[in-house]
Design a protein around this nucleic acid. Structure first.
Lengths: 230, 230
DNA sequence: CCTTCTCTTTTCATCTGCCGAAAATCGATC
DNA sequence: GATCGATTTTCGGCAGATGAAAAGAGAAGG
C-alpha cells in the first residue's frame, strides 16, 4: 500500500486528504478496502468512509463486491482527457516553431471549440512585419475555414485542405492530427496574407503541414495505417 | 466552459468543490484561467484560488505562462494507472471463465504486488472437488513461481512458462499480458493438482493461456509485433 | 437459532478549518 | 505616475469536518 508524505503548507486539508485517498486507490496493487485505505493514509475509518463516498459520488472510484475500491468510469473519462489534450498541447510546440521557420508564416493549432467553432489553442507568429494575427484563445467558425474542414476530416488525398475566401485576405492551409484511436484531436495550420501567397506556396505549406501532422499523430499513438507512409 | 450540476447529498463540500474544479480543468477546451474556472464552478475567486493551489500542490494541475490551467504530471500518472489497471481487471473476467471451461482447472490473474511478490488479483475456481485453492487478494513469491517468471517476461518461445516445484503438489502454467506500450501488465495462469496433470495437459494449458493472453494484450492496445500472430 | 467478530456507516458534540468580503499585491497598459 | 483587472492574502465568523462512540451489516462458528 502506498505510503504518502505529510500534508504540505497552505493546502486545504480535507481536499488534500481526499486526493491522497484517490491516489492510494489508483496506485493500489494490494488490498484496497476502506480499512486498508484508511490505514495507508492515516485517517480515521469514519473520515475515510466519508471522503471515499464523495469520490464515489463523482464516480472517480467504485467499490466492488469484494469491498475493494478501484477507478470509476468518470475517473477514466478524465484520465483519457488528461492524457489526450495535454500531450497534444505540449507536443505541438516545437512543430509550430519549425513550421514558422520553414514558411515564415504564422503557424497554429486548432481544436474543437464550442459547437460550430474552432479554437486557436496555440500559435507561433510569423517573423515578418506583415503577418496574420495571433488569435490564441479565440474561436473562428468551423464552416468555411481550413481548420474547420481539417477537423471534419475533409482533406484532399494529399492530406491537407486550403481556404481562400473571397471576403478574406488570408490564405489558410491545414492538416488534421490523429490520436491513438485514429480520432481527429486537432489540426495544425499555416495562415498567410493572400497577396504574397502563390499556388506554389500553398503546395509547399501543405506538404510541410502533412509531414508535421503525421509526426504528431504517430507521437500520439495513431495507428500506422491511418497515418500513411512517411 | 463546462457547466456542472449542484453539489449532491451527503458529500464533503470542499472536496466536492475541488473535484468540480479538477473536472473543469481537464475537460476545458476554452479559456482556463482562475477567473474562468471560478465562474464555471460558481465559486468565489478566493476559494477557487485556494482549491486550485491544493490541486497544483499535488501536481494534478499546472498553470501555464498564459494563466491557463492544464493537467499536471501527477494527474497523467494517475490517469495512466486508472486506464491500465481497471481495464485489465474487467477484461480478464470472461477469459478466466473460459479458461476454466477449457481446462477444468483454476484460472488466475496475477499482477505485481509488493517487492518480490505477485498478487492474485482475480480468480475463477475449478469446478472439480479437488482443486487448487482460490487465493484472491493474497500474494505469493515472485521467485520460483510461474506467475513470477511470466511477470519477468521469462517465457519459452511458445509464450508460456511452467512451474512444478519439488516441495509443491501444484503444477502452474502462466503467460504474460501486455499493455499498449508493450509493457507487462500482469499474467494469467492455470494452477492444477500435480497428481492429475500430464505433460500433454501442460502443453494444452499453455497453448490456451497464450491464446487468451494474446487476445487480452490486443484488447489493451499492445503493439501487434510484440503480441505475435494470432 | 444465537453469539461473536470485523468492517463499515451513522450519530453527535466539539472546534478549527474553510469560507467570502475586503484589502493587498501583481502585472499590463496608457 | 495612475488605472484596471486578475490573483493572492488577510481576517473574523460560523458551519462544516472531525474522531469517538454507537449503530448497522454481514460472515462464521457453535
Amino acid at each position: 500500500m502506498t505510503s504518502v508524505a505529510p500534508s504540505q503548507e497552505g493546502s486545504t486539508r480535507s481536499v488534500d486528504r481526499a486526493l491522497r485517498l484517490l491516489a492510494a486507490v489508483l496506485e493500489s496493487t494490494t488490498q484496497g478496502t476502506l480499512s486498508d485505505l484508511a490505514r495507508a493514509t492515516e485517517l480515521s475509518a469514519a473520515t475515510a468512509s466519508r471522503l471515499l463516498a464523495t469520490l464515489a459520488q463523482h464516480d472517480l472510484v467504485v467499490r466492488g463486491e469484494d469491498g475493494k475500491y478501484r477507478s470509476g468510469t468518470r475517473m477514466r473519462q478524465l484520465a483519457a482527457a488528461a492524457l489526450r489534450d495535454n500531450a497534444l498541447y505540449e507536443l505541438v510546440g516545437p512543430h509550430l516553431i519549425q513550421l514558422v521557420e520553414e514558411t515564415s508564416e504564422t503557424a497554429s493549432l486548432g481544436v474543437p471549440g464550442p459547437p460550430g467553432e474552432v479554437l486557436y489553442l496555440r500559435q507561433v507568429p510569423s517573423p515578418r512585419q506583415v503577418q496574420t494575427a495571433v488569435w490564441t484563445g479565440r474561436t473562428i467558425p468551423r464552416d468555411g475555414t481550413a481548420l474547420g474542414a481539417a477537423l471534419d476530416g475533409a482533406t484532399t488525398p494529399r492530406g491537407f485542405v486550403t481556404s481562400q475566401r473571397p471576403d478574406s485576405d488570408v490564405t489558410a492551409v491545414a492538416a488534421p492530427v490523429l490520436g491513438h484511436n485514429g480520432e481527429i484531436l486537432g489540426a495544425i495550420s499555416i495562415n498567410a496574407p493572400a497577396y504574397r501567397t502563390t499556388d506554389a506556396d500553398v503546395e509547399r505549406y501543405g506538404a510541410a503541414l502533412v509531414r508535421h501532422a503525421r509526426e504528431l499523430s504517430v507521437a500520439l499513438g495513431a495507428p500506422q495505417h491511418l497515418v500513411g507512409p512517411a
